[in-house]
C-alpha cells in the first residue's frame, strides 16, 4: 500500500430546504490508501451516498475539499474515478457490449479498440457470451455486472460503488461479492464501497468507516486484518460484524426514531 491517495478534508454538506437547512455531512475527515478496499457503512440517511457523490465530483461540498493524488476534485474525472450505482442505469437500446464501451465511445476511442477493451472486461466480470444481449434480457445480477464492467472499462485507478448490490437477493449478493474481491485483486484498483450490509463490509474490506446518524460524521474506522478468501461463517468475520453493530446500532436507532418509530431499547 503506497501511501495516502484520497484525502477527504473537513467536508461538510448543507442542503437549503424549505425551512430549516439540513446538515447531511458534518466535518468528514478520512484518507484512503492506494489499492485499498475501503468501505463506508452507516444507518439509512446518514449521507453515505452524498459523500460518495462529492468524492466522485458529481456534487460539491459546502465546505472542505477532496484531494485525489494531489489534485483537488472540481467535477467528474472519468479518467480517474469511475462510479457504479445501485441502479445499474444501463441503456436499454444498446447491447451489453455497447453499454460497456460507452465511456470509451464518449472519449472518442476507435471502434476496434473499444470492442477489444469491452470484451476484456465483459470476460472479467464473467459475462462472456452475453455481449450481444440487451439489458432487458438480463437478470438483476447480470445487469449489475454489466454496470461494473462499464465502470472497469474506463480503466481508472479509483472505483466508487454506491450500494451496488442493494437491489439484489442475498445469494446473488454473496456471489457477486466474491467476484468483486477477485476483480479487485486482479486489477489492483482503489475501491470505496458504500453499503448498509454488515456482512458485506466484513467480507470485502481492508478498512471500514462507520458513520453516525444525520448529521453524518465519522464515528470510527475499523481495520479488518483477516486474510482472503474470507469465510462468512468464521469466528473472525462474526467478530467484525459484532464490532460494527456495536458502533452502529445506536445510530440506527436514532434514524428510526427520527422517522417516528418508537423502539423499545
Amino acid at each position: 500500500m503506497s501511501g495516502q491517495f484520497i484525502h477527504v478534508q473537513n467536508v461538510t454538506k448543507i442542503y437549503e430546504g424549505k425551512g430549516k437547512p439540513i446538515i447531511a455531512l458534518q466535518d468528514i475527515n478520512f484518507s484512503v490508501n492506494k489499492g485499498e478496499f475501503f468501505t463506508i457503512i452507516g444507518p439509512s440517511g446518514c449521507g453515505k451516498s452524498t459523500l460518495l457523490n462529492i468524492i466522485s465530483g458529481l456534487d460539491k461540498p459546502t465546505t472542505g475539499k477532496v484531494i485525489i493524488d494531489g489534485m483537488e476534485v472540481n467535477g467528474p474525472r472519468p479518467d480517474r474515478v469511475a462510479v457504479v450505482f445501485q441502479d445499474p442505469a444501463l441503456y436499454n437500446w444498446r447491447t451489453v457490449l455497447d453499454n460497456v464501451a460507452f465511456g470509451l465511445e464518449i472519449r472518442g476511442v476507435n471502434k476496434k479498440e473499444r470492442r477489444e477493451k469491452a470484451l476484456k472486461y465483459i470476460r472479467l466480470v464473467g459475462l462472456s457470451g452475453f455481449e450481444d444481449k440487451y439489458p432487458t434480457q438480463l437478470s438483476g445480477g447480470m445487469k449489475q455486472r454489466t454496470a461494473i464492467a462499464r465502470a472497469l472499462c474506463l480503466e481508472t485507478e479509483i472505483l466508487l460503488m454506491d450500494e451496488p448490490f442493494g437491489a439484489l437477493d442475498e445469494q446473488t449478493r454473496l456471489l457477486l461479492g466474491l467476484e468483486l474481491t477477485r476483480i479487485w485483486q486482479e486489477t489492483k484498483k482503489t475501491i470505496i464501497f458504500v453499503t448498509h450490509s454488515l456482512l458485506e463490509a466484513a467480507l470485502l474490506s481492508d478498512r471500514i468507516m462507520i458513520m453516525s446518524a444525520r448529521p453524518g460524521r465519522v464515528k470510527n474506522i475499523l481495520d479488518v486484518d483477516i486474510p482472503r478468501p474470507r469465510d462468512p461463517n468464521s469466528r473472525e468475520i462474526n467478530n467484525i460484524r459484532a464490532m460494527i453493530w456495536e458502533e452502529i446500532k445506536d445510530e440506527a436507532k436514532k434514524m428510526m426514531i427520527e422517522g417516528g418509530l418508537q423502539i423499545v431499547p
Binding site: 458529481l58 467528474p76 472519468p78 462510479v83 450505482f85 441502479d87 442505469a89 460507452f102 464518449i106 472519449r107
Partner: peptide, 13 residues
C-alpha cells in the same frame, strides 16, 4: 431517467 443523463455527463459527454 435522470440517472442515464447524469451518467453520460459524468463521463464527460
Amino acid at each position: 431517467d435522470r440517472r442515464l443523463i447524469v451518467y453520460a455527463l459524468s463521463l464527460g459527454a
